[in-house]
Amino acid sequence: MTGAATGDRLYQLAVTGFALVIPGLLALIAIAIGVAAWPAFSTAGLSFITSSEWNVQAGKFGAAPAIYGTLVSSFIALALATPLAVGVAIFLSEIAPKWLRQPVAFLVDLLAAIPSVVYGLWGIFFLVPMLRDHVVPFLRDTLHLGGTPLFSGPAYGPSMLAAGVILAIMALPYISAVTREVLLAVPRSQRDAALALGATKWEMIRDAVVPYARSGIIGGVILGLGRALGETMAVTMVIGNRPEISASLLAPGYTMASLIANEFTEATSDLHLSALMAVGAVLFVVTLIVNGIARWLVWRVASGPRA
């Protein structure tokens, strides 16, 4: 009898211990990065996030270009990926014939399995040249967008646009998987109600299904945003890595993650290291907030309709 009780106690102790690893690990990460980042924050103050001057020799560390680049590349990614991902999800949950659903869902899900570095490799040797040689001329000459600041200046290849496109491809499976799930969670009665009013299938999707799943879809998009913000390798390989803010999407840029990836092993001064840790800390906090919002929105749909 005592044997069983001891066993139970040991077991309970073990699993609780394992569970506690997770908060412990996160606390350790937050403290380690916070402490390491502190010198940079206290030296640069608010200019750390507002200044555009990132000069290692001069000891000036303004992360604004990297923060800007992270936001812009992720925004391009969402703008491209969201309509496609929602389209695929609608196709898979409402329209596709049964035999087609599994294979298409499998192919789209597979996009999430491709390692980031492979996306980067493909980006360097295929996507970047294709954008430069075909897409940019098309945008400029056929659509006459060359005059707008967004598409002005020389197009060497590696650019904010390339980073945005590759991030779009990478975020797509996440957005579409969540969207598909929340669409499937819409009760059949909502669809019936719309059809009984004489709605066509599209009107049913537009007026009943999508509004019902709205906040879950937004949650999926924000989850995709979380992925895009923290993505490192593929972006580092195609964005051009130049710490400047340019209005043109064809100009090279930088992101927080690629800044860390590029400079970390070469950082020699303590302040430089601390500045990179500080970039990591900003990235940590931003993704934390973004993911928190996403989880909350998806959870809201999962827990049924609301006002």
Partner: peptide
Amino acid sequence: VRFLSDVLNGLPSIVLGIFAWQF
């Protein structure tokens, strides 16, 4: 723990890299 596990899952992998470096 469940919530923090989600947080850890959403953490950019590069952040884990600099953390492991530090320690």
